[in-house]
Design a protein around this nucleic acid. Sequence first.
DNA 1: AAGCCCTGCAACCGCTCAGAA
DNA 2: GTTCTGAGCGGTTGCAGGGCT
Length: 341
Amino acid sequence: MGRVPCCDKVGVKKGPWTPEEDIILVSYVQQHGPGNWGVLPTKTGLRRCSKSCRLRWTNYLRPGIKRGNFTDQEEKMIIQLQALLGNKWAAIASYLPERTDNDIKNYWNTHLKKTMKKLDQLDQCHGSNDLFSLENGLTHLSSSNSSTSRGQWERTLQADINMAKKALHNALSHENPTSPHNYIKQENPQVSSTTTTYASSTENIARLLQGWMGSSTSSTNNSESSKTSSNNIATTDSSSCDGTPNAESKGEMGLMEAFESLFGLESFESSSSDELSQTATPEAETEVLKIEIKREENEHDVEVPLSVILENWLLDENTLNIQPKNDLTTLISFDETPHLF
DNA sequence: AAGCCCTGCAACCGCTCAGAA
DNA sequence: GTTCTGAGCGGTTGCAGGGCT
């Protein structure tokens, strides 16, 4: 006896959302913030189930969603993250804050899956491809023999991690000079150089209001809603200069943290010198210190491109030689979805 | 021009998990 | 400890639009 689906209620509308429904939903979220989806339909009179409202918000109306084609950078990140995390679309999406898990999932299913298949076939014929050997190298991670002893499993894991690092390094070293750090930056030359592709917080809402409510956009109502929006929703207005980190910097910081978490820097910090020094070689210890120094430099607004940090880490043979225990910690940190906001 | 097929994407469904009662 | 409910996630479906015959 399964649970009665929330959308089975009589009078609950299904299917595509109308602009009017979107506006109702957006204005509710502007006033009350996202959450409390359960009461939303009754309070707004929307004939939609709470789940549908949440989905519509998170996948479409939420500010900061980038739509349109995926860049090469994004594509590579998705491929690499999918190889590392599997079909954890929400986790993958947290590393691409401009994209929703649904978008990434769709993109994977419609584009990348096929590409990977083709490349897999090519790979079998012509040897390994740098980028895709990463995925291939890790695929047996999830399917490893359950009867394998813990020690064996850890050794396999260590081998997999090393293989992944090398493959990732190869992939990164072959790509164009645009670093993941730069990728965050807006490509629109018309706007100031610090503007991000991360859409303005009110962009989606304004689009709704302007597009569908016509000439009333200049009304006080709109400015009021924008104000409300900036209170309730993380603003990405690059012109903000009040000293508080705007969404752009938040986004960058978030991405940096995400990368650090993904590639184990965070775990280096958390396990840090004490624990690490007990098991790691002196060389590895030195490298950990180097990484920590780099982190401190970053914290003091010395802009070290993320790609440099990544490459340093990837190229770092000593890091590769750190005992399995530590890399296991590193891997475990992969599962911890970073909170970007 | 009409019909068919393919593709991309928005939305739904079923499930799990966490927190409150 | 159990039940209920809301939130979130991943897989799947259905529809619209474009391309091809």
